[in-house]
Design a protein around this nucleic acid. Sequence first.
DNA 1: GCGTAATTGCAACGCTGTTGCAACTTCTGA
DNA 2: TCAGAAGTTGCAACAGCGTTGCAATTACGC
Lengths: 156, 156
Amino acid sequence: MPLPQTEAPGRLVAELLSRGVRMTRQRRTILSVIETASQHLDAAQILRRARKLDPGIDRVTVYRTIRLLKRHGLVDELDLLHLEGEKHYYERHPQRDHLHMACVRCGKILEFESDLFERLKGQIQRDCQFHILVTRVEIGGYCAKCRGNSTDLRSV
Amino acid sequence: MPLPQTEAPGRLVAELLSRGVRMTRQRRTILSVIETASQHLDAAQILRRARKLDPGIDRVTVYRTIRLLKRHGLVDELDLLHLEGEKHYYERHPQRDHLHMACVRCGKILEFESDLFERLKGQIQRDCQFHILVTRVEIGGYCAKCRGNSTDLRSV
DNA sequence: GCGTAATTGCAACGCTGTTGCAACTTCTGA
DNA sequence: TCAGAAGTTGCAACAGCGTTGCAATTACGC
């Protein structure tokens, strides 16, 4: 029987501890929020959820924790084409890169993995002598449901 | 003898006029700044250059013009992985999509076109039934010069 | 040219994210 | 087990990017 796709909870905590980062109550809370999220969360949403678990947590602590995770390459930052304002969204850095498709009409976010993209990265590393650390692919358009329905001009 | 790669100047003006958009002195100035830029400019840089040509131009007009161009799909917005703050950069929407590679050490931006990427887009449209309007690919890492030089941890 | 509708500049605002600092907490080492 | 150094937190204030309301001005079809 195959194991579920989800990774062990607490992996962010373990990862940071193994790198000698101090673990506080607030950090554990914020990390668990990020880790158990089923969708892409922005800083305000992370704060709101963290406060349900520990009401004293401050905005600033959330921002500092996100920065910490970014510096350690444990989360990726997305803006999903700024379909709703200037916020940034965060997700666990995945085992394997994926692309994000955002429907400019209904706002739905789709994710997509592709061998072609892996080959493209290989081509870049070879042809440009560029050592890739992070990738971010955001594609805007109409999802299957919304295509054909309208010629809505939403700012992308 | 092949023509140079650059497109006819004034094409943004022509494009907007053909869509029934009013053309003001300020807009012409801002459009010419964007059109003749050899690098990716942020809003503040666009404003500074526009003011050299027409000192009265206001910040707000620059933002409104950028929004107009985005709505018409005539410019693409990039953030180049926020290597320097939260600004956005703008470039003419190209004939053919290209990827942006940002060196996290020296900040250099490379552009790259690839048939593989065109095939990837085809795959997405087919497999996901997703109608692509814009793409945005930003890749962070070390450029040829900087790779091997350091293990600098810059926030990406 | 006239008139209307769009655009501009100004001021004020909102939101996301950052910084300085005193109080507090974590964690090492004895 | 506990003392001390180093790191972290919360608060308040700030910075920067981008937006909005509004009166004055401008473009452009008729």
